[in-house]
Amino acid sequence: MNKKVKKIITLGIWEDNAIFRQILGICSALAVTNLMMNSLVMGLGLMFVTAFSELTVSLIRQFTPKHIRMMVQTLIISAYVIIVDIFLKAYYPSISEALGPYVGLIITNCIIMGRCESFAQKNPPLYSFLDGLASGAGYAIILMLIAFVRELLGFGSLFGYPVLGDAWVSWTLMIMPPGAFFMLAIVIWISKNIFKENSEQGGAKS
């Protein structure tokens, strides 16, 4: 039991990390990472949605007809995204405004759909819930990592607090779209180098 839990967590956060191992869900990974705060909220929102969607999909997996399961999954995901959206609007209106349509775009984030389809469809609810948390956490960590570099270099601050002082000339390119593309490419490059030995031994993972 414990072994399986541990395996799910390491797979989700590290070995099968959605962003740099599977290149999924990068739309929002790029769009919200210009500020640490936005990325944190986005990451937490995604964890919530993934975990509870997987839980729900797993709970009703025996009653869902095979050919409409995609539609059912999409509706479940949308329902949770609406909860996140209303919650943000009520308690953190400024962040909700900054994230704009990207909260809604969690629906089309391929990570959630992918996990629901490949994991929750075949596993019991508790494991699915854990898997959702782990995949979401893996996503959130990478988001924070990219946002850390971008906000530090682009604004000279972290979570809005200036850390680099007045002498730092803001590197505006980092908070513009090109900075996001370059940062993500670098993250993928680094992770591929770390994983090189693994994939050479075990053959190419798709």
Partner: peptide, 23 residues
Amino acid sequence: VPKGLEGPGITLIITGLMALAFI
């Protein structure tokens, strides 16, 4: 292309350059 940057990596870098041009 540097190993490890092949595939998605280099695509992202090219996209970044295109985004620069579109600015």
